[in-house]
Simulated scan of single mutants.
Amino acid sequence: MRQDTRIPRRIGRPPSLSPEQIACVRTLVVQGHSVGSIARTLNTTRQTIIRTKKQYSNRPTSR
């Protein structure tokens, strides 16, 4: 039998923020910027920023 050498792909909707943008969100939140200003800076919605904040709030930063 031949092994499957294809690269696994993510199933579903692609993420709306890149890992770099997520790191930027976390940094700006710590600095005290508002959700609306972060959303405008990253050209995304407030809901995306709120969801990202909630999703990554318990994870340690990579410093």
Rank of each mutant, 00 (worst) to 15 (best):
R46H: 08
P8H: 02
V35A: 09
T41Y: 06
P15S: 12
I22P: 00
T61F: 04
R6I: 04
Q21F: 13
I38Y: 03
C24A: 12
S34R: 05
L17G: 00
R9K: 10
I7V: 14
I50S: 11
T5K: 07
I49D: 00
T45Q: 04
R13G: 00
I50Q: 15
Q21S: 07
V25N: 00
S62R: 13
R6P: 02
I7M: 08
Q3S: 03
R51V: 13
H33Q: 10
V25Y: 01
I11A: 11
Q21V: 04
V29Q: 05
V25D: 03
S18I: 05
R59F: 09
R26E: 08
H33S: 03
I22W: 02
I7L: 09
R51K: 11
T48H: 04
Q21W: 10
R13Y: 03
I49S: 02
R13M: 10
I50N: 08
S57R: 06
T44P: 03
H33G: 00
S18G: 05
V30Y: 13
R26P: 02
R46L: 08
S62D: 10
Q31C: 04
T48C: 09
R6A: 14
T48N: 08
P60Q: 06
T41H: 12
G12P: 00
L17V: 07
N58E: 06
I50T: 15
S16K: 15
L17S: 01
A23R: 12
T44H: 04
G32F: 03
Q55N: 09
M1G: 14
P8R: 08
L28H: 02
S18Q: 07
G12T: 02
K53C: 11
T41G: 03
P14W: 02
A23G: 07
R10F: 15
S57Q: 14
V29E: 01
Q47N: 11
I50A: 11
R9V: 10
D4M: 13
P19I: 10
A39L: 01
P14H: 03
G12W: 02
R40T: 09
V29R: 13
T41V: 06
